[in-house]
């Protein structure tokens, strides 16, 4: 099912219970921290920690993690290989025109961990947070609900688009191939996918916008929230602990690890 992929899972986990806005801030903290790291050690530590947190704190199984994040890990791996061969620095290995540099060997894993950790922590936010609760926490933080709802509507459209793509793909498959080469045929098909999905997407979006008006969306500046979310002080433990770990890792980089790598 399209809707089951990378979607919220209520498992009664510790992370399920944390205030959504706090989790959002936590993801931002991790992203900033990852960009400050200068050695692959720190990224590696964070990677292991986030994986452990996903399984222990979020009750997400390794299979679920792999199913959603495999493509990201793959991209990160390619990015790492790219850095191995294309970064400047002292050549440590060469074969014909292929060369690997010492700088590339450090930068490659840094980029792999940066991408993987940021994406994995974002996935963890999605897996453990009901979008409605996230929206409510935004509204409680002072965001007008008309804007907060845009996140919600984007989520609502994903499965509809997936359904549309499946239907168009099936319908086109049985039309056969008119153009000469396989490549030009594929290009033509993709053109039509985009056209059909765009046209139908616009139609659906128009209907949804009209429907929102018909359902009193924006009737008053405030609205009732039937399902409320409550902030508790202990929710701050996660970002504070993460901040301490990030600070510790950056400190370790400066006093020891940077020297190890000769940076």
């Amino acid at each position: 099912m399209a809707g089951d992929f990378l979607s919220f899972k209520e498992k009664g986990s510790v992370l399920n219970r944390i205030y959504p806005l706090v989790k959002m801030i936590w993801v931002l903290l991790i992203a900033v921290g990852l960009f400050l790291f200068k050695t692959p050690f720190s990224g590696g530590v964070m990677f292991v920690l986030i994986l452990t947190l996903s399984m222990a704190g979020g009750k997400i199984s390794p299979k679920e993690i792999l199913r959603s994040a495999l493509i990201v890990f793959g991209l990160g791996f390619l990015l790492m290989i790219f850095h191995f061969f294309f970064d400047p620095g002292e050549v440590v290995w060469s074969w014909y025109f292929l060369t690997i540099t010492d700088y590339g060997l450090i930068q490659g894993p840094i980029f792999f961990f940066r991408l993987s950790v940021i994406v994995l922590s974002s996935f963890l936010l999605i897996w453990t947070t009901d979008t409605r609760d996230l929206m409510t926490s935004f509204i409680k933080a002072g965001m007008p609900y008309r804007y907060a709802y845009t996140i919600f509507l984007a989520m609502r459209f994903l499965p509809l688009i997936q359904k549309e793509v499946d239907a168009v793909q099936s319908a086109h498959a049985i039309r056969g191939r008119a153009s000469g080469s396989g490549l030009s045929h594929r290009f033509k098909l993709w053109q039509r996918y985009v056209f059909t999905i765009l046209i139908n997407g616009i139609r659906k979006a128009e209907i949804t916008a009209d429907a929102l008006e018909c359902r009193a969306f924006g009737y008053k500046k405030q609205r009732t929230c039937v399902k409320d979310v409550t902030f508790r002080k202990r929710d701050l433990v996660l970002p504070i602990l993460t901040l301490l770990i990030l600070a510790g890792l950056i400190y370790m980089e400066h006093i020891r690890w940077i020297d190890i790598f000769g940076l």
């Binding site: 409605r132 509507l153 989520m155 399902k227």
Partner: peptide
């Protein structure tokens, strides 16, 4: 289906 604004059945009824 195009007029739904939320993700779950309960939320959809409560939306209006």
């Amino acid at each position: 289906e195009s007029m739904f604004a939320t993700l779950s059945v309960e939320d959809e009824i409560a939306f209006g």
